[in-house]
């Protein structure tokens, strides 16, 4: 039972990271029908950016609360800018050219960014500095809970609720939903589809950067290839929830995190990535529209 609860907490923590990254995937896919392979790299770069801020500036002196907020916001802002740039250079010219070209372009961006990170920060693991104020842990009924776990879960839930509110309750959200259903009709209704796409490429990378910084603070170690590992899992989470479906990505991420950690705890840690992919494949065979149903109606 203790192992179960322990793994549940771990699963929720890593699951909320998957959810945040998955949101970027699912929004881009919903609007553009594109697997944005570069998204994972933006998550990774966000993590490195936060690392540089922590190491080379004095932000840590602001105290845990404000320091964290400033770092997260700066990383999110930087990645949002990079996100727009990527969209502008690699995807915008390909708007009319079928589905294959943008996927290859996305892979190209992914390779580019990954190697850029390697050249800038080196190919070895980099360690986030220990931040004493955040290094707190409690024991609740035999289960260890760290402050960082609480922060990750809390921040993720707040951000996701905020996003859900924007998508469901505001005019902007309605425009995003309309664009996801049918771009041409949305354009005829006076929606600036390009602006919507740019907005998606601000929100997605920003959320990814937040997740990146928190992963750095939680696991302490970051590596230039981690974008790809997380992005595959986040994508799996997005498919689990039904791709294009925003609440689906949130639920899918949590579920995937929990399943992965339970698998790691009860069966074998060396095989945990295999569980993820087996779940993904089984899901696609048995219920290809995801657990909550796909939002996007696919035209034949």
């Amino acid at each position: 039972m203790e192992l179960f609860l322990e793994q549940l907490v771990n699963g929720l923590t890593v699951g909320s990271v998957y959810s945040l990254v998955a949101l970027g995937y699912t929004m881009v896919y919903g609007v553009m029908r594109l697997i944005n392979f570069a998204h994972g790299e933006l998550f990774m770069l966000g993590s490195y950016f936060g690392f540089t801020l922590l190491v080379s500036t004095n932000i840590g002196a602001l105290g845990a609360g404000w320091g964290l907020i400033v770092i997260v916001l700066m990383a999110a802002g930087a990645m949002a800018l990079l996100g727009i740039l990527v969209e502008r250079v690699a995807y915008a010219p390909l708007r009319e050219s079928g589905r294959l070209a943008p996927v290859v372009s996305a892979l190209g961006v992914s390779i580019f960014l990954q190697n850029a990170a390697m050249l800038i920060w080196g190919s070895r693991y980099r360690a986030y500095p220990v931040w004493a104020a955040l290094d707190r842990r409690w024991q609740v009924g035999g289960v260890h809970i760290t402050l960082m776990q609480v922060i990750i879960l809390g921040v993720s839930i707040v951000l996701m609720l905020l996003l859900y509110f924007i998508i469901q309750r505001t005019t902007l959200g309605a425009a995003i939903r309309a664009t996801a259903i049918d771009q041409d009709t949305a354009r005829l209704m006076g929606i600036d589809v390009n602006a919507i796409i740019r907005f998606i490429f601000i929100i997605g990378p920003a959320l990814g950067a937040v997740a990146g910084v928190m992963v750095g603070l939680y696991y302490r170690q970051i590596h230039f290839t981690m974008g790809w590992t997380y992005s595959l899992k986040a994508f799996t989470a997005a498919i689990m929830g039904g791709i294009g479906n925003i609440p689906g990505a949130m639920v899918g991420g949590m579920l995937l995190g929990i399943l992965e950690m339970l698998g790691a705890g009860y069966i074998s840690a060396a095989w945990k990535d295999v569980f993820v992919f087996i779940i993904l494949i089984a899901l696609l065979i048995l219920r290809p529209t995801g657990l909550l149903g796909e939002r996007v109606a696919e035209k034949v």
């Binding site: 250079v89 070209a101 943008p102 290859v104 372009s105 190209g108 390779i111 580019f112 190697n115």
Partner: peptide, 20 residues
């Protein structure tokens, strides 16, 4: 050597934009 993959990724993007 170091810039090889960097160049390679950029080439993929350029290729898709100009000669898909």
């Amino acid at each position: 050597m170091q810039y090889r993959m960097l160049f390679f990724g950029a080439a993929m993007v350029v290729m898709m934009v100009f000669r898909p």
